[in-house]
Design a protein around this nucleic acid. Sequence first.
DNA 1: ACCTGAACACCGTTCAAGT
DNA 2: ACCTGAACACCGTTCAAGT
Lengths: 234, 234
Amino acid sequence: MTQQLQTSRRTPLNRGRVLAAAVALADEVGLDALSMRRLAEVLGVVPMALYKHVANKDELLDGMVDAVIGEIAPVASGAGWKIAVRLRVLSARQALLRHPWARQALESRTNRTPAVLAYTDEFIGLFLAGGFSVDLTHHVMHALGSRMWGFTQELFNAAASDAEAAMPPEAQAAMAQEMALRYPNILQVATAARHDDGSVVSYGCDDQFEFEFALDLMLDGFERLHGQRWSSSG
Amino acid sequence: MTQQLQTSRRTPLNRGRVLAAAVALADEVGLDALSMRRLAEVLGVVPMALYKHVANKDELLDGMVDAVIGEIAPVASGAGWKIAVRLRVLSARQALLRHPWARQALESRTNRTPAVLAYTDEFIGLFLAGGFSVDLTHHVMHALGSRMWGFTQELFNAAASDAEAAMPPEAQAAMAQEMALRYPNILQVATAARHDDGSVVSYGCDDQFEFEFALDLMLDGFERLHGQRWSSSG
DNA sequence: ACCTGAACACCGTTCAAGT
DNA sequence: ACCTGAACACCGTTCAAGT
């Protein structure tokens, strides 16, 4: 504690140290618990000291997002567009999975940082290099949306089924009965899909499988449209 | 002001009035500016008075989401699964477009309210009634994700291009030149796609077209898999 | 039964001052 | 050049008290 404070005093703050500490703190406590004041405390510094290195909290978040994007593997060379896009998306997914807060940060940002723009530009380049028209590429990018970053909005998040797992058995049974009565279709689909846990809702699915299922569905669709020289004007 | 306060005193608060006021306030000022304290002020009441009608802010947000879901048109009867799903999604989209904050609220929620579950259950029912296997329906629901609610994560949001539109012409020109040098692919795709405004980034697109393009791409994919009796196990 | 007042433990950020 | 202290204008929420 005192040790850390002294170390901090010795080596002065800089933008890189602030961002690295912010990423580490968010990894540990989540994005909602990341405050300027708490970050300052970790760095052994008074809150206002941070404002010499980042303009405000928004810029801090931008810097954190850029750091995560820096972890995405570069484009595979020599592969066809479909394989290259697939690898890039799955690599982005790995980086985002290492920093669970990054998805929320990416969603909340206005997102025009150089790293975001560079990633997007390279991504578009994969389709153009594959012979896609500018027109089709544009719609394809919209259709992919956040899937470009390796994530999508899931139906229900993990927190709910974690809470369910913590419930006493009789409460779980009562919930299952209630679900069966009121929401029979959900129960059917969820029960068929459950893998490791016995949750009533559709968590405990193989997220990676679901993600690739949807990604491949879209890529196959893009391939088909490209093959038939699809155009939005006709 | 005094008038409003007196009216509020006459008719006591109840959950419905609190929720209606919250929806109206969020419509007006956005979700980030919606605070318990500000809502109380609008209702001419002290902040703590709200806590007799909603347990906390999370429950308030759940109630607001439920109110928006209540605006979604009921399922079309007698149509095939593809048309019924399409109509339902586009109706949800209309409801969400009327309340721009609802998307953010829906994303942030743990989302297990009765209204969310009921909507999801009916939605799943459309595929099952269309003859989809439980297995395929499960993956299809994951693939749709938030598209079920009529929205998807866009690449860049409107705020950025609004800011750009407010920039002086020479600054816009400088930005275009910078984009051309650094991000030529983005510029190409964005320039080809611009409709009404002259923005350098990909806003000013026809959102409705883009949404339906992606939705139909997925529905066509689902139809194809269903037709070939696709199963995840083989 | 319903509402209030005061308080607690937080936020992000500005401003003037220190070294 | 970099950091600090005090302050401002906010949050959500608890608790004991009022009517």
